[in-house]
């Protein structure tokens, strides 16, 4: 491991200034659960680590009638420990509960998971399904990017040199809605998604028709995918197995999985369909106010 400098600014402005000074040789450190490992194995060799955990704006966790604001450095355990998130943004809590073990969850942040931009990241499909928007700050000011447009390749994203993720903004939950994230892993814990699927649905008052739906896929392409057409196709459809199977078939169309040590392309394609169906059914159940028992590994 090569030597590096460490700074822990307490203001956003100071962080941006530092980042600008070191340009692309600086890396932001939130929980560090990805970054430290990457530095240790030599995949990254930054000159400067900027610890963003002491910046107030990045620790915001605010749930109101306007929606949810989640600071980029808020660790996972705070997410699934927050009653409002568990009830209104259930998919996000699902993700945070299965990222690593307790020790990792105590450090790792959703913002860090997004900025690491791994194709198999467990939180990103939930962020997409829940319509999250990334608030980015940099030397040229602030901008907002929809999460589905954030990642550009494995480990790559829209952040320019000197920019950092400040927070994730979510719209308020609407009535008769529910969401869910699930992944397929060969083991039951401590594993990485072979396929991950996020889904959120809005039902009509009678709860027998879809008003709208958002479906997202992880680990089946260089970036997490937003299966927009598959979700849009559900609008106005009856809530039944047939509609859900059609949505799953439509979602599979955009998947471009590869064959690797975690599964063959054919396997991933098949699992994508299976998981979209299961995720939609769980989201529907939540929209109906039913309890969804997320069994280990399933």
């Amino acid at each position: 491991m090569r030597d590096f400098e460490y700074e822990a600014p307490i203001t956003l402005a100071a962080a941006i200034e530092l980042a600008g000074k070191h340009n692309s040789s600086a890396r932001m450190l939130a929980g560090g659960t990805d970054l430290i490992d990457q530095v240790r194995v030599g995949r990254l060799a930054p000159d400067m680590l900027i610890d963003v955990k002491k910046i107030a704006e990045l620790n915001v966790l605010e749930h109101s009638s306007f929606g949810l604001r989640l600071g980029a450095a808020v660790p996972c355990y705070q997410v699934y420990g927050h009653c409002g998130i568990v009830s209104d943004y259930a998919a996000l809590a699902d993700s945070c509960r299965i990222i690593g073990g307790v020790q990792i969850q105590s450090r790792a942040s959703v913002g860090g998971n997004l900025c690491n931009s791994g194709p198999a990241a467990d939180s990103i499909p939930s962020l997409i399904a829940l319509e999250a928007v990334a608030l980015i700050a940099g030397p040229k000011g602030r901008r907002e990017v929809a999460v589905e447009d954030f990642c550009t390749g494995p480990g790559k994203n829209v952040l320019a040199a000197g920019e950092l993720l400040v927070e994730l903004k979510f719209p308020a939950r609407v009535a008769n809605s529910g969401s869910h994230y699930r992944r397929f892993i060969p083991r039951n814990e401590m594993d990485i998604a072979v396929v991950g699927v996020g889904a959120s649905v809005v039902l009509n008052d009678a709860k027998d028709k879809f008003v709208s739906a958002r479906i997202s896929l992880g680990a089946v392409a260089p970036t997490p995918l937003f299966a927009k057409a598959a979700g849009d196709g559900l609008a106005g459809q009856p809530v039944n197995d047939d509609s859900i199977a059609k949505a799953a078939a439509a979602a599979k169309v955009i998947a471009k999985p590869i064959t690797d040590m975690r599964g063959t392309a054919e396997f991933r394609m098949h699992i994508t369909g299976v998981l979209v169906e299961r995720a939609l059914k769980a989201a529907v159940a939540r929209a109906k106010g039913e309890h969804v028992d997320c069994k280990v590994g399933h």
């Binding site: 060969p186 083991r187 039951n188 814990e189 401590m190 594993d191 990485i192 690797d260 040590m261 975690r262 280990v296 590994g297």
Partner: peptide
């Protein structure tokens, strides 16, 4: 029986040389 295996690419590189991807059972399994 269920998961352990050296996963080689065609160049003979083991692509799962970590306990993340070389899956020994955990207590949940």
């Amino acid at each position: 029986a269920l998961n352990e295996e050296y996963w080689y690419d065609d160049k003979g590189v083991m692509r799962n040389a970590s306990y993340l991807d070389y899956r020994i059972p955990t207590i949940y399994d």
